[in-house]
């Protein structure tokens, strides 16, 4: 269905969906030499409350699966694979956080962290968690606005 919309949009020579007109596609993202992404992916200010939801929801970012966040203690089972995110908003600016979430490997080569705004370059990409091969173009792990919302939430974590 989604694929058909894209094809239809392409045939009509218009951009896919007027509400997403401002969205920077994963392939069009500009990453600077430090792995930072300066430009917003949507042009819409991030919503920290929604960012917290993305951080703690298994089907979305599920960031606490790997990172401890003291401010999110109400959500159980924080992981220990990545660094604690306490104070992350004091350590990084918006462009740095956006770059890390979109593709941490651009800043930290070899990082275990998944790239949340990338759609190619994978080995045997699957159809979500079915174990079957992906069909058609991949969607990024998070939508552009999800990432902007998480960035906005992380910038509130200034306390160590």
């Amino acid at each position: 269905m989604f694929t058909r919309h894209i094809i239809l949009a392409a045939l009509l020579g218009v951009s896919a969906g007027t509400t997403q007109a401002e969205v920077v596609s994963p392939s069009a993202v500009v990453v600077n030499e430090y792995g930072e992404i300066v430009q917003s992916l949507t042009g819409i200010a991030g919503d920290p409350a929604r960012g917290q939801e993305v951080m703690t929801t298994r089907g979305l970012g599920n960031c606490i699966a790997c990172h401890e966040v003291t401010a999110l203690q109400d959500y159980p089972f924080h992981g220990e694979v990545g660094p604690s995110l306490d104070g992350v908003g004091a350590r990084w600016d918006e462009a740095g956080l956006r770059g890390i979430i979109a593709n941490a490997k651009a800043m930290f080569p070899g990082s275990i962290m998944p790239s949340f705004y990338k759609v190619d370059g994978y080995t045997r990409p699957g159809d979500a968690y079915t174990g079957k091969a992906a069909e058609g173009a991949l969607e990024p792990l998070l939508a552009a606005q999800d990432i902007e919302d998480v960035v906005a939430y992380l910038l509130t974590l200034t306390e160590y």
Binding site: P114, Y122, R124
Partner: peptide, 28 residues
């Protein structure tokens, strides 16, 4: 050692580099 899938995880990422750590509620 190959990083598979859209999460780009190898066996080694979890079971060599992170054993003993928790990933959500699981103890690797």
């Amino acid at each position: 050692y190959t990083r598979f899938g859209q999460l780009e995880l190898s066996c080694a990422n979890c079971h060599e580099e992170n054993y003993g750590n928790r990933i959500r509620a699981d103890h690797l």
